[in-house]
């Protein structure tokens, strides 16, 4: 049986008091609690974190690419084209 893809989360860490959260990478977790736990284990092993934010990657809205010379509509998009960010009806099958 094919396991559904585990959701992708983006991780932001505030490493020291006074700094803003910084994006450090992503991880896979089934829910928010597990995502926070995993973020601590992966991205703060060397004491790098005072505060951790985890956000489902698909929930983030991005502006269009910085380079205005590229021919995109000035519209909103996902942060990247991950297979799990887009819903495909079951009938279409595995993609």
């Amino acid at each position: 049986m094919a396991t559904p893809n585990t959701p992708l989360w983006e991780v932001f860490i505030r490493s020291r008091n006074g700094l803003a959260h910084k994006h450090v990478g992503s991880l896979h977790a089934s829910d928010a609690t597990m995502a926070l736990q995993a973020a601590r284990d992966i991205y703060t092993r060397r004491g790098e974190g005072l505060s951790i934010w985890v956000v489902p990657s698909s929930a983030i809205t991005a502006s269009d690419p910085a380079d205005k010379g590229m021919m995109f509509e000035p519209a909103e998009s996902k942060i990247y084209r991950h297979p799990t960010f887009y819903e495909v009806p079951e009938e279409v099958g595995h993609m």
Partner: peptide
């Protein structure tokens, strides 16, 4: 951990870790 960081980077290009 390094494997994790790298899969994360690869995923930004549109592949899933599972694939």
């Amino acid at each position: 951990g390094h494997g994790l960081y790298l899969y994360a980077a690869a995923e930004t290009l549109g592949a899933s870790r599972e694939q």
